[in-house]
């Protein structure tokens, strides 16, 4: 474990906590895309199939359980919670997200490191994670006005991805046989998707004004 990997995991964890905090304490999911949250739940479910068969460390197991538990409880909150679900902006969240899964699955069947069920599902989760943020970004563009917690949530998610790229660069130079084209290409694409958001986030931070995306 290097410092970049740890920073990546911690910003990822923080992003989830910020979102849960918003939903749990304010009882609101305004500005949050259920479509993106459902995709994240599928990402973790298909990636952690080896949760009970491939032990790596206590840290890994606990983090996996946190990401699984949090992603499914966020989806539950938005869909089922009596108060929270009323704040869900359904009309702004119209992305046909399940259509994103097919190309990811087909790509995973053809481009993977090993053709086994577990490996194909793992690769599928890597591809799906790369584009899972799209419904959320589309929703941001539409609503334009972004509250602080939603802005911080997306910023932390983007930071998590950026730290993972630094982690891969570090591991490439410090470990033998560390070449993983699939995760790298998917990871870079995923990080680039946050580029636009980062730009406006830093602008608003620098000028000390409320974050607002251009029409």
């Amino acid at each position: 474990m290097n410092i970049f990997r740890l920073a990546g995991d911690m910003t990822h964890l923080a992003s989830v906590l910020v979102l849960l905090l918003k939903i749990h304490t304010i009882k609101s999911c305004a500005g949050i895309s259920l479509k993106t949250q459902e995709l994240f739940a599928i990402v973790f479910l298909t990636r952690y199939l080896d949760l009970f068969t491939n032990f790596i460390s206590i840290y890994n197991t606990i983090m996996k359980l946190i990401f699984l538990g949090s992603s499914f409880s966020i989806v539950w909150y938005i869909r089922r919670h009596r108060v929270v679900r009323r704040s869900y902006d359904k009309d702004q969240d119209t992305f046909r997200h399940f259509f994103l899964m097919w190309p990811c699955l087909i790509l995973a069947i053809f481009i993977n490191e090993k053709f086994t069920l577990k490996e194909v599902m793992w690769t599928f989760s890597i591809y799906l994670e790369a584009i899972a943020i799209l419904p959320q970004l589309v929703m941001l563009q539409r609503t334009r006005n972004i509250d602080n917690l939603t802005g911080q949530y997306i910023f932390l998610l983007g930071a998590y991805r950026a730290f993972y790229i630094l982690n891969w660069i570090y591991r490439y130079f410090t470990e033998e046989h560390y070449v993983h084209w699939i995760t790298w290409v998917a990871g870079v694409i995923q990080t680039l998707l946050y580029g636009d958001f980062f730009y406006y986030y830093f602008q608003s931070w620098k000028n000390n004004v409320k974050l607002e995306l251009p029409a």
Partner: peptide, 10 residues
């Protein structure tokens, strides 16, 4: 750690 294993990432 085992070299080159990306499955230890989250």
């Amino acid at each position: 750690s085992i070299s080159g294993d990306s499955k230890d990432e989250l």
